[in-house]
Amino acid sequence: MTDRRLRNTWITWIIAIALLALLPIILGGSYILHLLIISCIWIILAQGLNIILGYTGLLSLGQGGMFGIGAYVSALLAVKLGWSFWITMPLATTATALLGFIIGYPVLRTRGIYFAMVTLGLGVILSEIFNNWIGVTRGPMGIGDIPYPTPINLGFTSIAFDSKITYYYLVLAALILVMVVTYRIAKTTLGRALIAIKEDEVLAGTFGIFPPKFKIIAFTVCSAFSGLAGCLYAHYITFISPESFGVMASIDALVIVVVGSAGMVLGPALGTIILILVPEALRFASEYRMLVYAVILGVVIMYMPQGLGCSIGRLASKIVSGRRVANAYIGTSGSNQNLRGANGS
């Protein structure tokens, strides 16, 4: 039973990845590819927020600023020092993680609304730095001509990243990495500790979970994801300016996480699909796009306050357990245990 379930999980993963890899071929078109790349980057950014908000229960509004740090560090190293993307990407991710680690120390002493305010302040400060440290960031003029990732030479052939399709596979690889890391966190002691802190910090402490330690870990992981997203964004768009990394970016990430379901590994992906792809699909009626966006938001918040992912999950488990009940009556695979489990849920 467990073996079969394990194999099924693997098959599901492989099918999902294969589908994602084939997506540009199925859908085609440069514009679709652009949307897919941007979506992947947003999912990575939102996944960072999901770790700190969905799992640890802390509302961070500094996500946009951390996104910017990743973008600026990578862009500056590439443009001013001419370093290869394959060096700047890990460096930018590490630098953002480090910043999160250092800032986390004082910031994570606050909680609830105060944490939200402090991180909002952090986002604003970072955005002001991007705007005003003209000697380094060139201020509102932004940094242009950011190089595409250096081609990888495999001997017989080399993979260049100047086309959208190769860049899509690059961000897809990054996205899969981020998803796997999040999935592992969610499934293991670390995730359980984070959820315990979200549920009840004092109770978590009673059982040996030291909240400050785990909050720092969560904030560092959150920052690393944001930095990675920023770096991928910078080398894709090839031009960055402060306005992409302001408070609005933080709010967008927040909306994605909330709509998709905070505290679910697939939440940010769902949120991105709904909030980025659906409005884009309605481009033919462009004057109604913002209306559609608003209606989606309103409906989700009113009727699915725990987010879309949660509602879909509940529906799916209802269907599955319904089938289990039927099986139990027919006596195919069901046992008394199954029946009880189904009634309980």
């Binding site: 890391v181 592992r184 002691t189 670390l190 359980r192 959820i195 059982f207 040996g208 979970i209 870990i217």
Partner: peptide, 21 residues
């Protein structure tokens, strides 16, 4: 899940090993 969370202090494997399955 609540019971497993309460097992935290008995854990002997580090977080990293746990993450790496």
């Amino acid at each position: 899940e609540a019971m497993l969370t309460a097992c935290y202090s008995k854990r002997k494997t580090g977080l990293i090993l746990d993450l790496l399955n």
